[in-house]
Structures are given as C-alpha cells and as structure tokens.
C-alpha cells in the first residue's frame, strides 16, 4: 500500500543502498566481507548499539533527546553485578537482567518524571541525570573493572551457532544476546504499531498540544517512555558485560552521541514525529560496518572515526536537504496565509 512517491521520500532506501555499496566495496577489495565469521562478528558488534538505538529512536520520535542512557546502563549493570557477586548468587541470569532492568527503569522514571510532569527540557535533564548516575557509579560505588558473577559469565559463553571462515579457518560465535535484540525489536514494533500508547509517542512528537487535546495523557506517556528506555538500557548493560565477561564501568560511556547519530542517519526526524525501526537498524548497521570492517580493506582502525564523522555529516546533510525541499512547497503556501 506504500506508494512509490512516499518510498522515495523516505530515507531507509538510501541508507540501505549505502550499506550494500559499502559491503560490496569491502567484499571486492578484500573478499572477506561476506564470510560467515565476519557477518557474525558484525552482528556481535551490533547488539549493544542496536539495543540502545531502539530506545533512543523512541525518545527522538517523541520530540526529545536522551544522553543519559549509557550512564543508566552502566550504573544499573554495575550495581547488579556487585550485588550478585557479594551475595554469592549462582542462579539463573534472568535475575541479573530483571534486577538491572528494574534499576534502569527507576532511573528512567526519574528522567520521565522531570520531563513529563515538570516539563523540563530533555537535553538538559538527561545531561544532568547522566552526570548524576555516572558520578554515583564512580563515587558511591567506587567502580572499577570487576569480575562478573558465574550466572553472567555462563550466559556470556552461550552461543547460538559458530560460523567458520573456510579460507582462514577463523571462527566466530553468534552470542545468544542477539535474541534479546530480536525480542526488543518485536516488542517495540508491536508497541508502536498496535498500541495507543505507541501511537501516542508519535502523536506527541507531531504536536504536543494537539495530543493533549485529543485525550492523550502526555505526561504519563513520557513517564512511560523514559522508564521504558531506562529498562532497555538496564538490560543492555547486562548483555554488554556478559559478552565481554567482565564488568567494566566505562565500557558503554561515550556511546550515546554515536547512537544518536546512527538513529538520525536512519531517517528519524530530529524534531520528532517520524522514525522507523527498520531505518534505525539500518543506521546502526552502517555505523557498525564503518567502525569494524574498514580494516578489511587495509584502512587502519585509527582512521575509522574519520569515516564515522564523514558519514554523519554527509548522511545528515542529505536528509536535511530532503526535508528542506519537501517542506518548502508547503511552507511557501503557508507563509502567505
């Protein structure tokens, strides 16, 4: 039912084309891109930023911005890790996820409360809470790289399958955490497509006053949204430390700006209202390939940030142009009115 006209107006096809072109280029130059182990390695590198990007996309769609999710993830996973270690817990990893998720949810709820009920600007609030959570982690909990409890360590060793590169003999394991990503994608897809709550997030991003008049409880929706993003971040934190097998408090800090860039690259409108899961995953994929696969064509990893920066600039520049030309027509009409 999607018309061709609206297809060309979307940015997913462009990002997808860029991914295809980049992977073909790397494949042509190295012959190593479309190998089982490289693809599995990419998928592994994708899990954490992709999980973050889902929440980040929802926030930007609602017209906000969140720079605290990495701090939430770090503090939630660190407290969980330390508590489980101290209690000598040896049960299922599910408790770790539940606990970290719950802590994340609480921290997200603080954001949501300040933003939803006190109507404070999102960037400033999340800057403040981000600083607060990082400080609590390093200050109150004197965080430093630490072991993980056996449950998390064992969970980190679970693999779905192992891909072997026949030429080089290198193997890569597909981590089971990828299932969390799939689960989160399905859940959020159902949320934004089939619930009034999800439609409310888009409605608020389109026109907050209109959403209020239509009968959406804007403050509660925002509270839900930021709490949900906190929950996702808490879960992502445990997924992260289980994959690297030790609880490094700094492992996720600093990712927030790249995640935001990936989300916008994937076609989410910075001013809110528009954004899709497909586009977001495309955006994260493109950034992950840039960060991980350029080495295959002989570009040293030292230079990968240059490419990341260039892609952010070119990608957002192109989408800024698109939005500009699409709106200009309507705007000239409106202006006279």
């Amino acid at each position: 039912m999607i018309s061709i006209r609206s297809m060309t107006r979307r940015s997913e096809p462009y990002v997808f084309a860029a991914i295809v072109a980049l992977s073909l280029l790397i494949q042509a130059r190295s012959g190593q891109f479309f190998t089982g182990n490289n693809l599995v390695d990419l998928a592994r590198a994708l899990i954490v930023p992709a999980l973050f990007s889902i929440g980040c996309m929802l926030v930007i769609v609602s017209g906000g911005i969140d720079v605290s999710f990495t701090a939430i993830a770090s503090l939630a996973m660190y407290v969980t890790d330390k508590t489980l270690l101290a209690s000598g817990y040896s049960g299922s990893v599910l408790l770790a996820y539940a606990m970290s998720g719950a802590l994340g949810l609480l921290m997200g709820a603080l954001n949501g409360g300040l933003i939803g009920f006190l109507k404070l600007p999102t960037l400033v609030v999340t800057l403040g809470t981000g600083s607060l959570f990082t400080g609590v982690m390093y200050g109150v909990f004197a965080a430093s790289a630490s072991d993980v409890p056996p449950a998390i360590a064992a969970h980190g060793k679970q693999t779905l399958f192992t891909a072997v590169n026949l030429e080089s003999g290198l193997t890569s394991n597909m981590p089971s955490q990828v299932l969390i990503l799939v689960g989160a994608l399905v859940l959020v897809f159902l949320l934004i497509r089939y619930t009034m709550l999800g439609r409310g997030i888009y409605a608020i991003g389109g026109d907050e006053a209109a959403a209020e008049r239509a009968g959406f409880s804007v403050a509660w929706i925002k509270l839900f949204l930021y709490s949900f993003v906190g929950l996702l971040a808490g879960i992502t934190g445990v997924a992260r430390i289980s994959m690297i097998s030790y609880a490094d408090p700094s492992t996720m800090l600093g990712m927030e700006l790249t995640v935001i860039a990936a989300v916008v690259l994937g076609g989410t409108r910075v001013t809110g209202g528009l954004g899709t899961l497909t586009g977001t995953i495309f955006g994260v994929t493109l950034m992950t390939i840039l960060a991980n696969s350029l080495i295959l064509i002989g570009i040293p990893t030292y230079w990968s940030r240059v490419f990341t920066g260039a892609v952010i600039i070119v990608g957002t520049g192109v989408s800024a142009r698109q939005i500009g030309s699409a709106r200009r027509r309507v705007r000239t009409l409106q202006k006279e009115a």
Binding site: A261, V306, G309, I313
Partner: peptide, 22 residues
C-alpha cells in the same frame, strides 16, 4: 547545508578526533 547543529558538530567531533587519532 542546513544540518542541525547538534548533528553537524557531532560529526565534526568524530571527524576531527578521527583525524587526530589517524
């Protein structure tokens, strides 16, 4: 190029740091 400032400078931050590392 009318890129929102937050994104443009997110990009330049990556770019300049990238050049510096490179």
């Amino acid at each position: 190029f009318r890129i929102p400032a937050i994104l443009a400078t997110l990009g330049t931050q990556q770019l300049y740091t990238g050049i510096a590392i490179g």
